[in-house]
Design a protein around this nucleic acid. Structure first.
Length: 347
DNA sequence: AAGACGGGGGA
DNA sequence: TCCCCAGTCTT
């Protein structure tokens, strides 16, 4: 018997018991801590999450605290972590949990799945890890492990492969240790069954059950659909100063970097003359312009190629919010895209 | 089914 | 540069 079957369960649990990474959310796996960690871990590496998780738990130790928190507070706690709809959904769900469930997470897969920001994976992870329910938690690691175990060349990006994998693992969930089995699969994917053609099969506790290994295909699996090219957007970003204050703008409530603060910017790469004309047209009283080192920021689906300009004003521009550098650092959530430009304020 | 949605670490 | 990460939601 090989591939995804019940035979993998005990070897994986034994391997997990013999030693696994010491992660902050594993030490005290309360439903709230598991939930927050799983949301933070969506499309995000463990090492990136560690610091955010600790800060978050200190500031917002339970669901009622999160529900009562100001938007500026939880957004600032998420600053730099990316995919900011996650934190908005986290807060929305906390409010909902206080209204509907007495401020606690329900021990029920379908009710978890119904929460904003909770999909099939996260519902399974919370249900199994926090509540011990025998449901699978299939993430990118598990898809890769499954493709190799079964020597399956179906692109793991296909919805049908994901659905089939969930069903395969659902059939072998132990009634007592589903959370540990799910975590062992993810741990295996993150530390042994590595992506990019670099599996460490010699260290794998279920190598003898792996069809991909036996066929010599572990390194070429899994297959993925090709990804498409990013579009490029040219912008001119402004570090606006008026006295000791810095001019910021809040982004729209929907779309990219929704609701975060940003440096004001104009479409395209403007020459100094064009920029001066555009700013004067907007009614800004420009005292001085100074070019900064250009910066490139790469998102999943778009690249910003930004020219930076330091702008000194005689009077505050009415459309901007002016704050001190200290306020910007401590209270305004600014995307990483602007980091290099903001660094000029530190002198 | 495809696109939107961040950011960073490693090859 | 590209890959891909303890994915979800919208269209």
């Amino acid at each position: 018997m090989s591939g995804v079957s019940k035979a993998i369960v005990q070897p994986l649990l034994d391997w997990y018991d013999a030693g696994h990474r010491d992660l902050p959310w594993r030490s005290e796996p309360t439903p709230y801590r598991v939930w927050v960690s799983e949301i933070m871990l969506q499309q995000t590496r463990v090492e990136a999450v560690r610091g955010y998780f600790s800060r978050w738990m200190n500031a917002l130790p339970d669901i009622p605290a999160l529900a009562a928190a100001d938007e500026a507070v939880y957004t600032k706690l998420w600053e730099g972590l990316g995919y900011y709809s996650r934190v908005r959904n986290l807060h929305r769900a906390a409010v909902l949990l206080c209204e509907e469930y007495g401020g606690e997470l329900p021990a029920d897969y379908d009710r978890l799945l119904a929460l904003p920001g909770v999909g099939e994976y996260t519902a399974g992870a919370v249900a199994s890890i926090a509540f011990g329910l025998p449901v699978p938690a299939v993430d990118g690691n598990v898809l890769r492990v499954a493709a190799r175990l079964d020597n399956d060349f179906t692109p793991i990006t296909d919805a049908k492969f994901k659905k089939q994998t969930r069903e395969r693992f659902a059939a072998l969930m132990p009634s007592d240790r589903s959370g540990d089995l799910n975590q062992s699969l993810m741990e295996l994917g993150a530390t042994v069954c590595l992506p990019n053609g670099a599996p460490r099969c010699a260290d794998c506790p279920i190598q003898h059950l792996c069809e991909g290994f036996h066929r010599g295909n572990a390194a070429v699996l899994p297959l993925r659909a090709a990804k498409k090219a990013r579009r490029v957007e040219n912008r001119t970003a402004l570090v606006v100063r008026c006295g000791q204050l810095v001019g910021l703008r809040q982004r729209p409530k929907k779309g990219l970097l929704a609701g975060l603060w940003e440096l004001p910017s104009l479409d395209g790469h403007l020459s100094p003359d064009e920029l001066r004309a555009a700013l004067t047209e907007m009614g800004w009283s420009v005292r001085k312009l100074l070019s900064l080192r250009p910066a490139k920021h790469i998102f999943t689906h778009v690249e910003w190629h930004m020219n930076g300009v330091y702008v000194e004003l005689d009077a505050p521009a009415p459309t901007l919010t002016f704050v001190t550098p200290a306020e910007l650092r401590d209270a305004y959530a600014l995307p990483s895209a602007f980091r290099s430009f903001v660094s000029v304020l530190e002198d």
